[in-house]
């Protein structure tokens, strides 16, 4: 019995390796994996495997709590370093825009179509109601958003807003700034995030957003300013409404996964739907920033009707081309599962 017991020998034989792994992990955490020396980088994974091996042996043979606990946290720590995300930011961003975002949009065509139909339905309904009885306008549009525009406003006043004769007090960039926190960003955010509650909030928001659009169109048509309003709206509206529709489509697909999880559990279905929904949300956020720039800068500088129309629909075409054409022919279905973003 004079020899040390088995688990002590086990520990003595391996302790130096554990210490070395611990030092490498420490260095990697502090300075980053890429700054490890050649030897350390080479040995890291090997030592990690050895340590997990030791851990599983120690759990079986050793009753020394200290060793088991130490190995447990050492392995966990090393695991986090070995399996760290290792992609460069530029690579991620370029791949997102070149491939995964348009692919996600193409895969989510049904919810996008549904969101579009809902918006259109809301718009048409509100248009019909408001042109019938203009007091409906107040039911659809909150006061602060109308900013003086309403059934009671004169055609002259409406025209001034459209052609920017009363210039925003903050100037072009200021308008961009206020825009970013404005109504539509909120709508997009809510429509995406709350879609998870069985689609209901997203559907309501889409209908409501469409209704607001319809009400605005109705009062302008009433004053024979329909076309001018369309020009005013298109320059950013094409991009912006598409962004809202895309964000809501993300919300709808989340809600759909909650409603009809199929053979998966609800959580698993949600996670699966989340892969595309999140990409839709990021795309929508990007589009909203572009729409903000268009609204803030473009709308105040470009007052010509045809130029507005051209810029607005041109941007719309660019989006469409991006979604439809980018990232094709690279094994879409199989790559979708493997790609992190």
């Amino acid at each position: 019995m004079s020899a040390p017991i088995r688990s002590t020998r086990f520990r003595d034989e391996r302790e130096a390796d554990w210490k070395r792994l611990s030092a490498i992990v420490e260095a990697a955490e502090k300075r980053g994996l890429s700054r490890l020396t050649f030897d350390d980088a080479r040995d890291l994974v090997l030592l990690y495997r050895q340590a997990t091996n030791s851990l599983s042996v120690a759990r079986e043979i050793s009753l020394d709590l200290a060793v088991v606990r130490y190995l447990e946290s050492l392995c966990a720590r090393a695991y986090l370093v070995v399996y760290a995300p290792r992609e460069s930011l530029t690579g991620l961003v370029s791949r997102f825009f070149a491939r995964s975002a348009p692919q996600a949009v193409r895969r989510s065509l049904p919810p996008i179509a549904a969101a579009f139909v809902l918006t259109a339905f809301g718009a048409v309904a509100a248009y019909v109601l408001t042109s019938d009885d203009s007091s409906w306008f107040y039911a659809f549009v909150p006061g602060d958003l109308a900013s003086g525009r309403g059934p009671g406003a004169s055609a002259e006043a409406l025209r001034r807003v459209i052609y920017g004769e009363d210039v925003q007090p903050l100037g072009e960039l200021g308008a961009f700034a206020t825009y970013l926190f404005s109504h539509n960003t909120k709508v997009a955010l809510f429509a995406f995030a709350l879609g998870i509650v069985f689609c209901i909030p997203s559907v309501i928001l889409l209908l409501y957003n469409g209704a607001m659009l319809g009400a605005f169109v109705a009062i302008h048509v009433d004053k024979q300013l329909g076309l001018d309003f369309m020009g005013w709206l298109t320059i950013h509206g094409v991009t912006e409404l598409s962004a809202i529709i895309i964000a809501s489509a993300g919300g709808l697909s989340l809600g759909y996964a909650m409603l009809f999880p199929g053979l998966r559990s609800r959580a698993a279905a949600l996670r699966h739907a989340g892969r595309d929904a999140v990409k839709l949300a990021v795309v929508a956020a990007f589009m909203l920033v572009v729409a903000g720039a268009l609204e803030g800068i473009g709308r105040q500088l470009v007052t010509d009707f045809w130029a507005r129309l051209a810029i607005g629909w041109g941007a719309g075409l660019c989006w469409l081309a991006w979604f439809a054409l980018a990232g094709r022919g690279e094994g879409t279905a199989s790559a979708a599962e493997a790609e992190p973003v």
Binding site: R11, W18, A66, Y70, S73, L74, R77, L270, R271, G274
Partner: peptide, 25 residues
């Protein structure tokens, strides 16, 4: 939190390996 549930992540305490001497030794 809800985001963790969707992303299948969890927040844990950073493991801190500390090797105590063997009492048997």
């Amino acid at each position: 939190r809800i985001g963790d549930l969707i992303a299948d992540t969890a927040v844990v305490n950073e493991p801190r390996p500390l090797l105590l001497p063997d009492v048997a030794e």
